[in-house]
Write a protein that binds this DNA or RNA. Structure first.
Length: 476
DNA sequence: TGGGGTTAT
DNA sequence: ATAACCC
């Protein structure tokens, strides 16, 4: 099963093949160097610039959380319901034909014994989700969340450290943990293989820790970039892990039956590709880059065409605390202002609890609506504005009424979007608190106030913005 | 299609 | 403010 001539394109720049033994000698001699990467990660130089990335994907996460909350549900077919949808279900239910995002009626028809629990309140899922991320951060701080149930971790540095501890005689006894994609032969003289094997061992330790400390099972995929790690994590499904060695990367991506299955190519792009006659991964690989750039724009075109070759140089970006808090509710019909106001109050009350626990303060508030319409069902409209500073200061100060001024703001935003003198029909309301900033401890008027970089506005890229005199656009 | 999230334009 | 992406 040779993957003839398909070099992983990331290495196409002409990386020399280095024998693992030679590489280990350099490692032991402390010659590997390494330089700070995008996020202060040390990426190895010389032997290879290839990374070791793990994608961790929890099995039917909401259903697992529900079974932990109520162990009597274990062993029974279980679905988690939001409105009239079964958004996820456990494997007993899947065996009986229940699918994700299945209508409740269809699911009950397929599986009359299906037990349903309501999952519209995400609180416990969100809490468990962050426990998982925090657990993974103990292995390496570079953890990127994707939704509530997936995480990427860059293991490159950790793998390097473990290799430096390894003795030469332990190298020959090195084994993989879990599956090897495509049953590919492992070459212990290939330093890239060695590093991925160590990655697979760390992945196994992560899954063990998740199970022992949190009671959660999940899959993991280990590969040289996020795209491949994510694709390979789903190969053996539930509660198993798979490592992808570079020689099999082409068979992995060619195993996709349609470009839409590629993470990064969503509904819209897939439709536009289809209009160009592109449906398979091979179609996309071989399509004219120039024409693709003209059709999709240079940015999307170049990115997705690289993805089609299994190339993805995007870094694992540490997620850190959330950038925004939002709560939404969907319904069949909301057609009066009072009705809207009471729903908005409910959403805001939950949000204030969350933001209070977080400790940081939101400086922007947004209201989102979805209008009833037969066709364009997905489109939403929003209005946002700054939160007045006197309201921000009251946040988190217990009994002080912060609801009233914020509901007033939200209703102004509402009337800005919806002409309440005309009939209207909404199917969703959502409130979002964003532009979160840490409490500023520097006192106004002091040197510190003007010179300390505001932690809150320090962006992920590490750029620092210094506090300037505030513009007076409050109290709109 | 729910109830969330993110980044780019 | 919207549009795209992810789960």
């Amino acid at each position: 099963m040779e993957q003839l001539g398909v070099e992983p394109a990331e290495e196409a720049g002409g990386d020399e093949e280095e024998d693992a033994v030679q590489a280990m000698e350099r490692v032991e001699a402390g010659e590997t160097g390494g330089s700070p990467g995008v996020h202060g990660q040390v990426v190895p130089e010389g032997s290879s610039s290839s990374r070791v990335i793990v994608h961790v994907d929890l099995d039917c996460f909401y259903a697992q959380v529900e079974m932990i909350s109520n162990p009597e549900l274990k062993g029974k077919p279980l679905g988690v319901q939001q409105k009239y949808l079964v958004v996820t279900c456990n494997y007993e239910a899947r065996k009986l034909g229940v699918k994700k995002l299945m209508n409740v009626r269809d699911a009950k028809e397929k599986c009359p014994q299906l037990v349903l629990v309501n999952g519209e309140d995400l609180t416990r899922y969100r809490e468990m989700s962050y426990k998982v991320t925090e657990l993974l951060e103990e292995f390496s701080p570079v953890v990127e969340r994707l939704g509530f149930d997936e995480n990427f971790v860059d293991l490159t540095e950790m793998v390097e450290k473990r290799l430096q501890q390894l003795q030469s005689d332990e190298l020959s006894a090195l084994t993989v943990s879990g599956h090897v994609y495509n049953n590919q032969y492992i070459n212990l003289h290939d330093i890239v293989h060695i590093r991925l094997l160590v990655g697979s061992q760390i992945a196994a330790e992560m899954r063990e820790a998740m199970y022992n400390q949190l009671g959660l099972t999940g899959c993991a995929g280990v590969a040289s970039n996020k795209l491949l790690a994510k694709l390979v994590s789903g190969v053996f499904k539930p509660n198993q892990q798979t490592v992808l060695l570079p020689e099999s990367s082409q068979v992995l991506i060619q195993s996709l039956s349609h470009v839409k299955e590629m993470p990064g190519i969503g509904y819209k792009t897939a439709k536009r590709l289809e209009a160009l006659g592109i449906s398979s991964v091979l179609d996309l690989q071989t399509f004219s880059p120039k024409i693709l750039e003209k059709e999709l724009g240079i940015s999307v075109a170049q990115r997705i065409q690289k993805l089609s070759f299994g190339e993805d140089n995007s870094p694992v970006t540490p997620s850190g605390p959330p950038q925004s808090f939002s709560e939404e509710d969907s319904f069949k019909k909301c057609s009066s202002e009072v009705e809207a106001k009471s729903k908005i109050e409910e959403l805001l009350a939950s949000l204030l609890n969350r933001v209070c626990q977080d400790g940081r303060k939101p400086h922007t508030i947004r209201l989102i609506i979805r209008r009833y319409s037969s066709e364009n069902h997905c489109s939403r409209e929003s209005r946002q504005c700054p939160i007045p500073s006197h309201v921000i200061q009251k946040l988190g100060t217990g009994n002080c009424d912060v609801m009233t001024p914020m509901v007033d703001i939200l209703m102004k935003l509402f009337r800005n979007m919806v002409n309440v003198k005309m009939p209207f029909h909404l199917t969703l309301l959502s409130v979002c608190l964003c532009n979160l900033k840490a409490l500023n401890t520097a006192k106004k008027g002091t040197i510190d106030y003007y010179l300390t970089p505001s932690l809150s506005t320090t962006s992920r890229s590490g750029k620092r913005s210094f506090k300037m005199k505030d513009t007076h656009m409050e109290d709109f």
